[in-house]
Each structure stands twice: as structure tokens, then as C-alpha cells.
Amino acid sequence: MIPLLSVKSLSKDYGTNIGCSDVSFDLYPGEVMGIVGESGSGKSTLLNCMAGHLAPDKGEVVFDTRVDGPKDTLHMSEPERRMLSRTDWAFVHQHAREGLRMNVSAGGNVGERLMAVGSRNYADIRGKAVDWLSRVEISENRIDDRPTTFSGGMQQRLQIARNLVTSPRLVFMDEPTGGLDVSVQARLLDLLRGLVRDMGLSAIIVTHDLAVVRLLADRLMVMKDGQVVENGLTDQVLDDPQHAYSQLLVSSVLQV
């Protein structure tokens, strides 16, 4: 089977600070990969390099495109890369404000990706927006409200709806539950788990929260100082961590 995403020797360095160094892995269709580590471990740098938000110093990010098969996205033309990022890729930011248009209604936010790929029927767009709002548990009567009037949890759910409306084949998530209250986190996790299962999503989730990966990820990478120190099936890594740092990470969670 061809991997959906194949990352090869990806490195990024910020001079004195380490970004990420020599990271390689494959992600197969339907798989959810979790990347954990404390802040400064390079996990967000890695995610941003893969998603095309940051230019890595070296390496390849090969994506299995619909039309041409596997292609290095770092060497794609800009139109091609931007097309990819509004169709087959999605990116869920930690802070919903970065992923939403705060001055556009919830319906407009969900509809934007549809209109960007050519939807020109208002009723259809609105219908899909209503459907997706309900899937992320936002009431239909909020469809014309701006996200500024939403709670943090609702904003995050709206961002997820906006990203998933075009059925992307790969979703990048950067600390999707970060900054939310614990009860809100639980509800969002539950929702994400449902979506991942129902849609058979392929995703890469960066988080420092082991509970998130325990629930969502099939596989896990543990990062420290820009390096991948351990890598394996989620349950295996969490229940029987091999690397000293992974052991520390797991034990610190258990103590909480």
C-alpha cells in the first residue's frame, strides 16, 4: 500500500534553537499519528514544515495526490500547494481565531471552502453548513452569528467543521484541545473521536496531552530536542515506554 504521506529526513533549524532534525515516517490512509513532547521539543515546527507553513532546511514531504500519485509537496508550485491546502488538506489551529474568519458568520466560515472549489448554489452551501454545524453540535440558529460571539469550545468545533466540510484526505491538528477547560476538552475529544471513526480520517495530531493521543491516535511519536526518541503503536508506547524520556512523560501524566 502506498503511504498517504511520507516524510523523509525533514530538518529545520533556527540558528541557536533546534527546530526538528532528521524526522522520517510514513502515514497510511485511515491512520491517525500522534506527536507528543513538551513545549520546545520541535513538534509544532515539524507540523508546520509538513503543512507547508514553514520552509524546512532539508527533507521531503511526499503526499499521494489524487491525480499524479506521490509528489514532494515542498517542490510543488505555489498554485498546486495552495490548491492542495484548500481541498485535500486541512489544518486545525490551536487557537481557533487563527483558523477562522472572525468577521464572517459561522455559515460563511463553513461555506468558504465549498465556494473556493466552485459551489455556486446558496441553498446547497447553506444546507451543507447547517449539516456540519449539527455534526459539531452547534445549533442551527447560530448559523448567522459571528464566531466572536461563540465560546472557546464552540469556536474550536466551528474550526473543525470549516476544515472537514470538503472531506479532506489529510488533517493536521496543532494542539486541538489546548487552552480549553477540562470539561470542554472532554466533549471536543469525544466529538473528534466520533468524526475520526465515522469519516475514516487520516490525521497528524500534535499535542502535549497524552489523553488526546490515547483516545485518537493509532501510532505515536515522542519528540525531545527536535529528535524523535520513540515511535510505535500508541498503546505500546504509553503502556511500555522504552526511552527514558517517554517513561518520564508517561509517569508525569499518571501522577496527575
Binding site: P79, R82, V104, G107, G108, A116, Y122, I125, I143, D144
Partner: peptide
């Protein structure tokens, strides 16, 4: 314009109608 990314233009029209 170069990339023909005009989705935002329709978002504006969508907002008009919804409002």
C-alpha cells in the same frame, strides 16, 4: 488573482444574502 483564488469574494456575497 494569479491563483484564481476567488472563494472569499463569494463569501462576501454569501454574507450579504444571509444578512
Amino acid at each position: 488573482h494569479a491563483l484564481e483564488e476567488y472563494g472569499l469574494m463569494h463569501v462576501k456575497l454569501y454574507e450579504d444574502i444571509s444578512k
